[in-house]
C-alpha cells in the first residue's frame, strides 16, 4: 500500500477523536519549538513531529491496566495516554500544576502506569520486570515500551529481549524507526536489521509501513492479543519520519532528506485527503494549544523540596 493510498483510507476511517489527538500533539510540539525560540523554556526538549500517529494508533490497542514506557521523545506518548496538555506543558515549563512538580521535565514523567526516563535502552529491562509482575498478578495486561532505531545500539535492549523471550513475558516493544539517531543516519549506526535482531531472540517482529490509523490497528490487534494471551513478546517497527530537529535548531540533514520526510508527513497526507474536516480540526487544536500556552505561561513556578 502506498502512503497516499493509506492516507485516503485513513481520512475515511480516522474518527474525530483520533484526528483531534493527532493535531493536539502536532500543535503542542510546534508550540514548544516556538517557546524555545522565544527563550521561554529551560533546558532542552525532543519533539515527535511526524511521529504523532504512532502512539495515537496504539492507544485503542492498550488498556488502563497496561504499563506504558515513554522515552526522550515522549510528549506524544503521554498525550495519547492522558488528555493533559496543560499538565505536561506545566511540567516542561516548571509551572504550578506540573505532572511531576517540574522535577522530571520533558524526559522524566511518572503518572499512574505511565513512566518515561531519559537514558537510551534503560527502560527495557525495567519494562521486563513490570511485565513479569503483570504476568503473575494481572494476566492479560502488558508492558509497552517505546524505543527508537538508535536505542538498538544499547546492550540493555538485548539483555531484556533475551529475558522476555525466555520467560514469555507480555512485553510490547514499539520501535519508532525514523531513520536517524540524533544526527546519525540509521544506515551509519545499525548493522543488519531490527527484524533480524528480534528474530534472533525468537521474538516476533511486525513492520508497519503506513500512517493510516485504522490499517495499523487492524494489523496489530491480533498480534497484541497474542502478547496478552501469553504467547510471548512482540516487536513492532514503525517506518516513520522525524520532520523536526532532534531537539531544537540542530537538524543537520540535507534538505532533500527533510523534504522526503515532509512528503511522508501524516499531517500533509490527512490534510489532502479530507481538507475541510481537517482544516476545522486543525484550527480547533491550534486554538486549544494557544490558549493552554497562554494559561500555563501565566501560572506561578512549581514548588518542590528535595
Amino acid at each position: 500500500m502506498t502512503e497516499t493510498g493509506a492516507a485516503v483510507l485513513s481520512a475515511r476511517r480516522a474518527d474525530d477523536d483520533d484526528l483531534a489527538l493527532l493535531l493536539l500533539i502536532r500543535h503542542f510540539e510546534l508550540a514548544l519549538l516556538d517557546l524555545f525560540g522565544r527563550g521561554e523554556l529551560n533546558g532542552t526538549t525532543h519533539t515527535c513531529l511526524g511521529q504523532e500517529y504512532v502512539p495515537v494508533a496504539l492507544r485503542r490497542l492498550l488498556t488502563g491496566a497496561d504499563h506504558v514506557f515513554g522515552n526522550h521523545r515522549g510528549h506524544g506518548h503521554y498525550l495519547a495516554r492522558f488528555d493533559d496538555p496543560a499538565g505536561l506543558l506545566a511540567e516542561i515549563m516548571g509551572r504550578e500544576g506540573a505532572v511531576c512538580g517540574g522535577v522530571g521535565g520533558s524526559q522524566h514523567i511518572l503518572r499512574d502506569r505511565y513512566v518515561s526516563t531519559g537514558v537510551q535502552g534503560e527502560s527495557l529491562p525495567v519494562a521486563a520486570g513490570v511485565a513479569l509482575h503483570l504476568k503473575r498478578t494481572e494476566p492479560g495486561a502488558l508492558a509497552c515500551v517505546f524505543i527508537g532505531d538508535g536505542t538498538w545500539g544499547e546492550g540493555a535492549v538485548y539483555e531484556a529481549l533475551n529475558l522476555v523471550s525466555l520467560w514469555r513475558l507480555p512485553l510490547l516493544v514499539i520501535v519508532e524507526n525514523n531513520g536517524i539517531a540524533q544526527s546519525t543516519p540509521t544506515t551509519r549506526q545499525m548493522a543488519g536489521t531490527v527484524r533480524a535482531r528480534a528474530e534472533a531472540f525468537g521474538v516476533r517482529h511486525h513492520g508497519v509501513e503506513t500512517s493510516d490509523l485504522a490499517t495499523i490497528r487492524d494489523e496489530l490487534a491480533p498480534l497484541v492479543a497474542a502478547v496478552r494471551a501469553g504467547e510471548g513478546p512482540l516487536v513492532v517497527e514503525f517506518a516513520t519520519h522525524r520532520i523536526g530537529p532532534h531537539s531544537k535548531g540542530d537538524d543537520t540533514r540535507d534538505p532533500e532528506t527533510v523534504r522526503r520526510a515532509r512528503d511522508n508527513d501524516w499531517y500533509r497526507l490527512y490534510g489532502e485527503a479530507d481538507p475541510e474536516r481537517f482544516e476545522r480540526a486543525d484550527q480547533a487544536q491550534r486554538a486549544r494549544v494557544d490558549a493552554i500556552v497562554r494559561e500555563v505561561s501565566a501560572r506561578p513556578p512549581s514548588r518542590w523540596r528535595p
Binding site: P125, G129, L132, L134, G155, E159
Partner: peptide, 25 residues
C-alpha cells in the same frame, strides 16, 4: 516462583528488579 535464575545479564536483571519494585514488589 519467586527465586529466578537468570542469564548472565547484570544490567538486565537489575533493571528487571527495578521494574518489579516499581510495581510494589
Amino acid at each position: 516462583d519467586r527465586v529466578l535464575g537468570t542469564p548472565i545479564s547484570e544490567s538486565g536483571i537489575t533493571g528487571l528488579a527495578a521494574g518489579l519494585a516499581l510495581c510494589g514488589d
